[in-house]
Amino acid sequence: MRLRCSQELRELLPWYANNTLTEEERAKVEAHLARCERCQQELRELRQIKELVVLSVKSVPEPSEELFSRTVERTRSQGRHTIAQLSWQIFALGFSLGVLYERGRVRLEPEIEAFGWELKRRKG
């Protein structure tokens, strides 16, 4: 018996082969497969292709413990980096304000003066 298979159904077969269909979709595919030789052949090909695709990639061991510690180390050093950068920026700002102030090029308002002092205090 020659059955007509919808494109929609045939497009589900790869996902039947990789076992990721929903319960409902799987039941629909299985009901069709039971009666359709053409789709059974398609499924055989898909399974063979799946095997070959898996074979084409080198096998990998589990990620090493060292990979974990290296990664954590880098997240920490990035945290430190940010704090280091921030204190450098505060230092630079305080320093330039200080230089400008001492050279008398700018007259700082009392609030800004207080802020500059605060920055100097923080860097020290």
């Binding site: 082969a17 990721t20 292709i49 695709v53």
Partner: peptide
């Protein structure tokens, strides 16, 4: 898509 479907075994929605 071939690698994602057949090697990584992901669903079409993933």
């Amino acid at each position: 898509v071939m690698m994602l479907a057949f090697y990584n075994e992901l669903s079409y929605s993933e």
